[in-house]
């Protein structure tokens, strides 16, 4: 079944004809060429595909494009403004919070969800809240440092 979905992605209105079974991550990567959102496991476990839907984190591999009708989707590509990295991205760069970088978009998007709920997260909170994000390079130590620094920068 072909359906039409209308949604806002990174501030831009988009309309696409897709099959009903199209996942949000497929819409982003294959229809909109936004390949920053990664597919690590495709089984809802790894968090590489995390984006924000209406302000809260969601695994884009476990969400139909159809379910996002009218929604406001934010991906990693939507964070930098005028060529300047978002404070959370800058913190990941500064604290070497990535090795191969595959998990990084999901980590950064989850980090923003952590800051939404815990504006000043301590280390234990960050580790617990990153439960849904896996890093195969096991760079967790610096990821945790980056999230704390990013949160601090966002508090201003």
């Amino acid at each position: 079944m072909t359906i039409t979905v209308n949604l806002t992605v990174n501030g831009q209105k988009v309309t696409r004809q897709v099959e009903a079974r199209t996942l949000l991550v497929q819409l982003l990567r294959e229809h909109l060429d936004l390949t920053g959102t990664h597919v690590g496991c495709d089984t809802s476990q790894c968090g590489a595909c995390v984006v924000q839907v209406d302000g809260v984190s969601a695994k884009a591999c476990t969400l139909l494009a159809a379910q996002c009708e009218g929604a406001n989707v934010l991906t990693i590509e939507g964070l930098a403004k005028d060529g300047k990295l978002h404070p959370m991205q800058e913190a990941f760069r500064e604290h070497h919070g990535l090795q191969c970088g595959f998990c990084t978009p999901g980590m950064v998007m989850s980090a923003l969800d952590i800051v939404r709920r815990h504006p000043s997260p301590d280390e234990a909170t960050i580790r617990k809240e990153l439960e849904g994000n896996l890093c195969r390079c096991t760079g967790y130590h610096n990821i945790v440092k980056a999230v704390a620094a990013g949160a601090k920068a966002m508090r201003g």
């Binding site: 984190s57 969601a58 969400l63 989850s110 809240e129 439960e131 849904g132």
Partner: peptide, 9 residues
């Protein structure tokens, strides 16, 4: 239950 993204949906 699960992780934050799972709990959101």
């Amino acid at each position: 239950i699960g992780d934050p993204a799972v709990r959101n949906r």
